[in-house]
Design a protein around this nucleic acid. Structure first.
Lengths: 375, 375
DNA sequence: TTGAAAGCGCTACCAA
DNA sequence: TTGGTAGCGCTTTCAA
């Protein structure tokens, strides 16, 4: 046994073990080894055991490239996100990774930096690598990239952001429900003049805006245009500073808004800073709701009520859908999964006992904070 | 032109374009196509142009698997981190990705969830995929996994956490300098009884502790054991709640500490909460320094002074080192890159005008906050 | 139950 | 300057 091993080492120095090596050691053919590896039934029990034993001994690792070449499957999932640092996407990446790991898949992650052109290139690169399936949170404005993917017949799943008129697989939160939920919560807290700081022209932002309007409409309130502001400041940087600027403007309208539903948490943080800077109280004078439930929402000067977007669940569902797509024999028709958002109530909207959470709602204190360490 | 394309499509339906297809179309051999693709010099100008044109037209994409099989290089970098959601690691991942993108490499990312066994499996998986180089922020206690990597002769780089006695490539921040810097800053701010909430038994935590002690020693102060506490609460969860518990204990010692140097930002956040809950002021009664400079440090009830760990720079340096390793003809001897940390002074330590930042130090207000949006 | 032969798409080597 | 030949390590097919 050991003898033949050493022999091999002599001949092939520093090269990984191949099926051929095992076959030669055992006086079998590579075909037999291959079959054992993949659990074929037509192999003698005795032979199977010998082969498995030798594989162990030599730390045999099948060569993915060779396998991919012949099967046409790379056993990789490609993920494209606009920004890996954003906890929302990081969480999705983590969930996908965890879900596919057990099935022998690996995850190639790329970050498009919110740049459509870069995203296009990244997709090309992943297609060239023949990933078995693509999961994309797109920063595109057009659907052109997706046509290219379809040409290559690589299955793909959009997450987070949808495209009207593109019949593609989609997993994301129901953004209209997000808008409804946030606005209704403010109404329940007794807010009467509710403003909205809206996001860019994405399905996400438009959906939330729509939900905001519908919630008001349900109360017979006609949305006042001066209470719907885009995120302040132009350019890419439309987070905290943008929320600050927009809120400064909002506070100058009379009568002042007494509640603000914000496109996302950074914007809400900016809004809160502007409110505090103006000498007003949160939530007594102005209540604030964010979206995203970033994990630090709890540690702000005023803990921020936010709408959780189920990032882990989005990742998980996307992964499951991805696995089903690669295993599908034929092209299946696109499936759309809309997840329900969840309201996390914190201090920024909690006005006295008037608070009466309803529906899918969670109240929480500091104890919820369970995050991280070791760095 | 179009004619031959359609012909091809007839024969090979739904299969990606191969070199062979282009060769046949143009009456050349695959070898010529291959050379054009890789920019070999020994190809006629005329031929090169024709080939490139046809490649365009057919959207030719080289098959990575085939190329990998023959060259033995997979053109992938494997990254293993303990937790993708942690901004520190996310930032590193992003920086590596950006750095290798231009060189034709893709990044396979896996998260070990701080679980050594899972990390071992992930490394095995990546080795089986023949990644060209591994970058690992390890959650291991032993060096066994690394021996396996060395056996396979895959170059690897440790980041963030080091292992004593393991001569491996390393890129990380100088943790002793971190400890020195944080503690010295507190001293400069006039703190006299400086406590330390220490982390687990990793190189990172031990280095910071060492720096803390050295800074005190330089002042002729002998560190008092009752002022050095491990993160409170046992178990995995040693972040914010742990910092809270440890600080509650610290505040019961007499005389009370007037400054706390914390292992990381979550711990510091817990510490601040405990201090405020005890009715004390930050920084007047107790000043607090964290480590990590998580991007929300600015938005806390009291903005947190923190020591930045250069995550982007770590990622970049690791990527450059990785690229140099895959291109190295022979095994090169391990290189160790220790980056200098950077002190970011905020409200949690800024005591009146007594503040006189010195050395590599940055003072900052809200304006520094430049983060994200579109979600 | 086992294995010989063919070939996946590409590149290395050397001859024309 | 161009291309034939010979594989890379594996799976597929089909014959023994």
């Amino acid at each position: 046994m050991l003898g033949s091993n050493q022999e091999r080492q002599k001949v092939r120095k520093n090269t990984p073990v191949r099926m051929k090596d095992i076959a030669q050691d055992l006086g079998l053919s590579t075909v037999t080894i291959s079959k054992v590896l993949r659990g074929h039934s037509d192999i003698g029990d005795e032979t199977r055991k010998r082969v498995l034993k030798r594989m162990e001994e030599l730390h045999y690792q099948p060569n993915f490239a060779a396998r991919a070449l012949i099967t046409g499957r790379s056993w990789t999932v490609g993920l494209v996100v606009p920004d890996l640092i954003h906890p929302f996407y990081a969480q999705i990446a983590k969930a996908i990774s965890a879900e596919i790991r057990g099935q022998g898949y690996s995850l190639i992650i790329t970050s498009s930096e919110e740049d459509p052109e870069l995203e296009r290139q990244e997709i090309e690169q992943l297609l060239a690598r023949r990933v078995d399936v693509l999961v994309i949170a797109s920063a595109q404005w057009t659907v052109e990239s997706f046509r290219r993917i379809e040409e290559q017949r690589t299955p793909y799943i959009l997450i987070d952001r949808q495209f009207a008129g593109l019949p593609a697989n989609f997993v994301g939160v129901d953004d209209e429900a997000v808008g409804l939920m946030g606005t209704n919560h403010l109404i329940e807290q007794g807010c009467r003049r509710i403003a909205h700081i809206r996001g860019p022209q994405t399905s996400t932002a438009l959906g939330r805006l729509e939900g905001y309007k519908r919630a008001l409409a349900a109360q017979g309130v006609v949305p006042r245009p001066e209470l719907i502001l885009p995120i302040g400041l132009s350019g890419d940087d439309c987070g905290e500073p943008g929320g600050y600027e927009a809120t400064r403007k909002l506070l100058q309208t009379t009568p002042q808004p007494d509640g603000i539903f914000c496109y996302n948490d950074p914007v809400a943080m900016g809004a809160m800073r502007a409110i505090l800077d103006a000498g007003l109280r949160i939530p007594e004078d102005v209540a604030v709701v964010g979206c995203g439930n970033l994990h630090y929402s709890n540690f702000l000067r005023v803990a921020l009520t936010s709408i959780d977007q189920q990032s882990a669940e989005i990742g998980k569902q996307a992964a499951l859908l991805a696995l089903s797509l690669v295993n599908a024999k034929e092209t299946v028709r696109p499936s759309v999964k809309l997840l329900s958002p969840e309201l996390i109530v914190r201090a920024s909207t909690l006005r006295s006992k008037a608070a009466r959470p309803q529906g899918k709602t969670k109240r929480t204190g500091q104890s919820e904070a369970k995050r991280t360490a070791r760095r």
